[in-house]
Structure formats: structure tokens, C-alpha cells
């Protein structure tokens, strides 16, 4: 009888498990364009490079914040909130994927170069192979999570802002951006409600929960103003009617935040905004961003030819 060397049968012990039917892998066997079949022609009167830069800003906000929120997975106070924060992160990651793909379709020049033959799609190249200076997210989303109360305070401000922003983008002259926004509105509505309910619950809970929430609000408040600072790209985006000037969102967002604060029996923190320029939008980030990107990118960067 011939000896049978198992090690020589397969390169990997998992080879052959599926009898050669690759359709059973949960995430498919190939990268697919999330905008496959979508008409990504740049509308008349819209500058493609500015559209790409604008989509990177909104996509990076979602990507970086999704990563932060995903850090709660297996660490949240209870299972329901673990699942909730992971779901919110997943929704934002989906929005990021579409927005980064839209950026790449509008201007291929924004996509980092990869070795020839790399199977990494454009939106992954943007997420995993850009350096810190090329990220255009607000600093607000890159800060470390802190405790659950800090997270809820930040999520309330972020989701309230993003819901107003996405609603403002529904009439965008770019039909792709308009469609991504219309879909996102439905998702972020749930995020805002979740954060607002927890905010009120913590404020009206115990002395300790209220103390922590107040501390959380004071932690995030100085950077809140950054969400309404208008970069040059956003100003052009608003002029060309495919984007929104963030300054116009402030009254609407403030009204919702003030309503939640009033219900919670809290006042706006009396703290000055940190800085006056949209530094994150210009690629100037805080120390936290480097650590975040290291974790986000390390595996993809180690395998630029990798298929997942």
C-alpha cells in the first residue's frame, strides 16, 4: 500500500473542503465594484477632481469613525450595545465604501498606485494604502473612544450632523452622491435615535452616569465646531450644487442637539472651540490618527497582492 502524505495533498488544510465549489464562501471569491453598472459620468458643471476630493472627505469621516466604533466590539457594556455599535459601524463602513468608490470613479488620480497586477479595488486602495496626510476626515472622528459616555456624546453629535448633511445631499446634482445620501439617511436616522436615547438615559440615570456623561460631553465639545467649518473643497462643492456648505447645517444640527440637552436637563458646555480651521480636511491630523491607521491598514499593506 502506498503511503499517503497528507501534507503533499494540499497547500492548505482548507483546500478542497468545498469540493471545488467556490460559491459557498461567504464573501464571494472576487472583488466586485460596489458601483457596478451605476452611471458614474460626471454631470455637466461639476469638476471631477473636486467631486472626488469631496467624496473622500465624507467617505473618510465614515471610514475612520466606523473603525473607532468597531473597537467597541466585544467591549461594550452589554451585548445589545455591542451589537448596536457594530451595526452602526457597519452601516458607516458601507457608506464609506460607496463614497470612496465614487471618488475613484470621479478622479482615478486620487487612488494610490499599487504593484502591477494587484487585485485590490480602488476603494480598498484608498482605505488601506493612503498615508495619514492624504486622509480628509474631520479630527472629530479620529479621537480615541474614551468610555461609553464619551462615545455616546460623540455619536450623538456625529449622527445628528451626518443626518443633516446626508439630507442636504439628496438633491445633489451628482445622481450617484444623491443616491448614496438617500440610502444613508435611512440608516443614520436609527444611529441618531440610538445615541439620543442613551444620552438622555445616562443624563437622567445615576449620579455616576450623569457625571460621566457631562465629562464625555466636555471631552468632545471643543472639536464639535470643526464639523461646521468650510474647507475650500466644500465651498466649491456647494457652489457647483453637488455638495453642501457645512456652515448651513449648523442651525439645524444645533436645534436637535439643544433639544436633547434640554430633555436631559443639561446646558451646552461653556468651552471654546479648539482651533478655527478645518485642519482634518486639509490632512492635518492628531496623534490618534496614526495609531488608528496603523491598525486599520497593517494587514492590507503587508499583502498588496492579496485576495481575500
Amino acid at each position: 500500500m502506498e503511503s499517503h502524505d497528507l501534507d503533499l495533498d494540499h497547500d492548505s488544510v482548507y483546500d478542497g473542503l468545498l469540493g471545488g465549489d467556490p460559491s459557498q464562501w461567504a464573501f464571494g471569491t472576487d472583488f466586485e465594484d460596489p458601483l457596478a453598472g451605476v452611471d458614474t459620468t460626471i454631470p455637466a458643471g461639476v469638476d471631477g477632481a473636486t467631486l472626488a476630493a469631496y467624496c473622500l472627505m465624507l467617505g473618510d469621516d465614515a471610514l475612520v469613525y466606523a473603525h473607532r466604533l468597531s473597537e467597541w466590539t466585544s467591549n461594550a457594556p452589554d451585548l445589545e450595545d455591542d451589537i448596536a455599535l457594530a451595526n452602526i459601524a457597519l452601516d458607516l463602513l458601507g457608506q464609506a465604501r460607496l463614497l470612496l468608490a465614487r471618488a475613484a470613479a470621479a478622479d482615478a488620480g486620487v487612488v494610490p498606485g499599487l504593484p502591477e497586477g494587484s487585485p485590490v479595488p480602488a476603494e480598498d486602495a484608498l482605505a488601506f494604502f493612503r498615508d495619514e496626510l492624504a486622509f480628509r476626515n474631520v479630527r472629530f472622528v479620529e479621537a480615541v473612544n474614551g468610555d461609553f459616555a464619551v462615545t455616546i456624546a460623540r455619536l450623538l453629535l456625529f449622527a445628528t450632523h451626518r443626518l443633516a448633511l446626508l439630507q442636504g445631499l439628496v438633491p445633489s446634482v451628482d445622481p450617484v452622491l444623491a443616491a448614496i445620501a438617500a440610502k444613508g439617511v435611512k440608516e443614520v436616522t436609527y444611529h441618531r435615535d440610538y445615541a439620543a436615547r442613551w444620552f438622555v438615559t445616562l443624563a437622567q440615570g445615576t449620579d455616576e452616569s450623569r457625571r460621566r456623561l457631562l465629562a464625555g460631553l466636555q471631552t468632545v465639545w471643543p472639536t464639535y465646531a470643526e464639523l461646521f467649518r468650510c474647507s475650500d473643497v466644500e465651498a466649491v462643492a456647494a457652489r457647483q450644487a453637488f455638495g453642501v456648505d457645512p456652515r448651513v447645517l449648523e442651525p439645524e444640527v444645533d436645534a436637535v442637539v439643544d433639544h436633547v440637552l434640554a430633555t436631559s436637563g443639561l446646558e451646552r458646555p461653556d468651552l471654546p472651540p479648539s482651533g478655527t480651521r478645518p485642519l482634518g480636511r486639509e490632512g492635518q491630523h492628531t496623534e490618534a490618527m496614526g495609531h488608528l491607521l496603523a491598525e486599520l491598514q497593517v494587514v492590507a499593506r503587508a499583502h498588496p497582492m492579496g485576495k481575500w
Binding site: 464573501f27 464571494g28 458601507g94 448614496i180
Partner: peptide, 20 residues
């Protein structure tokens, strides 16, 4: 040509639907 629409932006089932 089959046209599908995602339920949620980040729904990972989309890739499986496409493959299936």
C-alpha cells in the same frame, strides 16, 4: 443582465447574493 439593489449600504450579504 441582473440588477439588484442593496438593502443596507454595508450589508455583507450583497456579495453572496451576487455570487449566488
Amino acid at each position: 443582465t441582473v440588477t439588484i439593489t442593496p438593502t443596507y449600504s454595508g450589508c455583507p450579504a450583497m456579495a453572496t447574493m451576487r455570487d449566488d
